[in-house]
Nucleic acid binder design. Structure first.
Lengths: 223, 223
DNA sequence: CGAGAGGGATTTGTATACAATAACGACCGG
DNA sequence: CCGGTCGTTATTGTATACAAATCCCTCTCG
């Protein structure tokens, strides 16, 4: 999108991820317009995108709130992502160019470098990880699949807690990526799917372990 | 959404599905505002939704066009829908109330009645079919899953061609629904998943047969 | 003391005017 | 005759004013 609405989007998103607002807190379009420095029109456009990504929700009477993700919500998100991204890996295995496989290798080198910093550079890790998965989705060559996954991957909760992962967790992630590259290089869709599946499922359990297995189960409905 | 933007959405959608416009034809927000009788503001809101549903697409310079669905696009849509809706059926099998199962039975009675009209009442069939699947998705109790599926099911191409299905095709569909209800009543997630899978995959092949197996393969890129 | 109605304040929805950007075509130079 | 550049027109993007809906507090009545 164009300048103002794009800017509104990223500023609001950053604002939400920064933790400056709490789940279930009400926001108004005017507030957001002030924060972002643009008028309500592009803010409304940005808000729509953020609603789509489930970072914001609207009450039944159109009032705007910060979304609250329960543990169950997050599990479902991981499950759906796994379903779709396994499919993407399968398709990608049949379609990746040598050049793209090279990109994946390079990205995974960056990712490993980020892990081996002391302390691990989690921001770089997340960026390399995001780019890695993006190449695969791109190669799957299915616009609709990409669109669906885009929503799931925007999920913020994961990003917020990634900083608590151990170096061992991160290294396992890098090993998964290595094996994915191997599966792609071998042009073996089944292998790629299987590795992607375990990769994401493990990520879910790592997440659960880091936030506590039964947290957040008694939260009130948010709408 | 509120009155004007909701009205704009359904009018534009109807306009697109009516076939009054051709794929790759350009539209302007002003035109649509005139057609719908509201200002550009709600039209833009409606257009965003339709873009999301891939009924409309924007060029790289933000100009608006009627989307063109290739056969491959449609196959991918069916594949994704199958993946997600099988999952929904599985979850629904564990969660449907007796009341909801009763609803499914009632809807399938309506559906069969529509089929046995002479000629078959395709509009009622489609409506009962939509409602049937909606109950299942609702019962799956996963907001994100429902949201993803909503997009896929809006796909218009299927609706446009449904009128060409034979009575035999429609009857098979009703039988699938009967078996789904049986699987739900037995609380057997695996059974439900399997039936849903074959139901949707058959629907795809019925679709392919009705439009011709290799149609629409040489269309130029639209963006 | 509680329930519900009324009304001002808050918030979202819509229309409109204007600004920014992209497409189109005419004109010019080679 | 071709290619490019500039100005005009068409189209989308943004700001703002106003309308509609909703919330919340208060006040009254039972």
């Amino acid at each position: 999108m164009s300048r103002a609405s794009e800017q509104a989007y990223s500023k609001i998103r950053a604002h939400l991820l920064s933790g400056a607002v709490r789940p279930n807190e009400q926001l108004t379009e005017d507030q957001l317009a002030q924060i972002t420095g643009v008028s309500r029109t592009p803010v409304r456009e940005a808000v729509r995108r953020l609603e789509d990504e489930l970072l914001l929700v609207r009450s039944d009477t159109k009032r705007l709130f910060v979304a609250d993700w329960s543990r169950d919500d997050i599990e479902e998100m991981f499950t759906l992502r796994q379903m779709l991204e396994c499919h993407a890996a399968e398709r990608a295995a049949e379609r990746l160019t040598r050049d793209q496989i090279g990109q994946l290798e390079a990205l995974n080198r960056d990712l490993k470098a980020a892990i081996e910093m002391t302390p691990p550079d989690v921001t770089s890790f997340l960026e390399a990880n995001r780019a890695f998965h993006e190449v695969i989705i791109e190669a799957a060559d299915s616009p609709r699949l990409g669109q669906l996954l885009a929503k799931l991957i925007e999920a913020p909760v994961v990003l917020r807690t990634a900083r608590t992962y151990s170096q061992g967790d991160l290294r396992q992630s890098a090993r998964d990526h290595d094996e994915l590259v191997a599966a792609f290089a071998a042009r073996d869709p089944e292998w790629a799917r299987a590795v992607m599946g375990s990769h994401l499922r493990r990520a879910f359990h790592t997440f659960v372990r880091s936030v506590g297995p039964a947290a957040n189960d008694q939260g009130p409905a948010q709408t």
